[in-house]
Simulated scan of single mutants.
Amino acid sequence: MHRLAIVRRLEAVGFRAWPAASIQYDGSWQVRLTAGHPSKRLNSVNPLDPSDHGDVETRVERAAQRFSAYGRPLIFRQSPLAPPQLDAYFDAKGWRRFDETTVMMADIRKLDLDATLDHLPVRELGRYVDANIQVHGRDKSIKPGLTEVISSIRPSSGWFVIEEPGAGPVATALCVHDSDMAGIFEVATRSDRRNKGYGREVVTAALRWARMRGAEQAWLQVGTTNEAAMDLYDRFGFEEIYRYDYRQAPDNSADE
């Protein structure tokens, strides 16, 4: 049985930490759309009440019209808050299930975060975004959209960049401090600098910053097939709280 109270809280801090440009509601279904960024979390329908499953077919079609107006494929993000009847509807229609993600938490107060060099967050958003794009290997065309998303984050956020002399940025992370919670996002190590400890270094820096600001619990989301990241977070003491995945009609195509 899922602990729905903590799921609801993590979903709420997650929405604040990675804000969509447009948010509308159909009952308790949160419709998130962002023209400038293709992230599925920013472009998906998020059902938030297991009991809200009335008139499914009409509501799914209504959501499809909204997504079509944005030029986005219709995607549902199915957490434990989604009604089982909605998944049954998708199963009957042949909707595919993809990109399963685990949401994990760790008690920052219990973590040993002193065995690494300290790195302060960078101050210039443009510098962080450029490093993020380089480290992730993303197309530079995403810069305006990524800048808009990060600049729209309302809770305090720290932008972390690890640089190697002569090599430039090699690892990045984004930490969002929201009350006693700290969300870790956008963790990446440049492909030619992996397995050198930079991932652990940048996550440690982010967690230390959050703990110094009063955060008590850290949380993050990671794809269940990302074995390297899962191993890293396991060594920090993160434990799974719940999982979510995405559903999409067979005749649709999502931006990955």
Results as ranks from 00 to 15, higher is better:
Y198I: 11
Y198K: 13
Y198P: 11
G199K: 08
G199F: 12
R200F: 01
R200H: 06
R200A: 08
E201P: 02
E201S: 13
E201D: 11
E201Y: 00
V202Y: 00
V202L: 04
V203W: 10
V203A: 04
V203I: 10
T204R: 02
T204N: 06
T204M: 05
T204D: 05
A205G: 06
A205T: 06
A205H: 04
A205S: 13
A206Q: 05
A206M: 03
A206V: 05
A206H: 01
L207I: 02
L207Q: 04
L207S: 04
L207K: 03
L207G: 01
R208S: 03
R208K: 08
R208T: 01
R208A: 05
W209M: 05
W209E: 03
W209Y: 02
A210L: 07
A210K: 08
R211G: 01
R211M: 06
R211K: 15
R211L: 03
R211I: 00
M212E: 03
M212R: 10
M212W: 00
M212Y: 00
M212C: 03
R213C: 00
R213D: 02
G214E: 08
G214R: 11
G214M: 10
G214A: 05
A215I: 08
A215T: 11
A215C: 14
A215Y: 07
E216K: 15
E216R: 14
E216M: 14
Q217T: 15
Q217R: 15
Q217K: 15
Q217P: 00
Q217L: 14
A218R: 07
W219S: 10
W219M: 14
W219I: 10
W219P: 01
L220A: 12
L220P: 01
L220I: 14
L220V: 13
Q221R: 15
Q221M: 13
Q221E: 10
Q221H: 15
Q221L: 13
V222L: 14
V222E: 09
V222S: 07
G223I: 13
G223P: 03
G223S: 09
G223T: 11
T224F: 02
T224N: 06
T224E: 09
T224W: 02
T224Q: 01
T225N: 04
T225K: 11
T225Q: 09
T225C: 04
T225D: 06
N226E: 09
N226A: 08
E227P: 02
E227N: 05
E227D: 09
E227A: 13
E227L: 05
E227S: 10
A228S: 13
A228T: 15
A228E: 14
A229T: 11
A229N: 09
A229V: 11
A229Q: 13
M230D: 06
M230F: 00
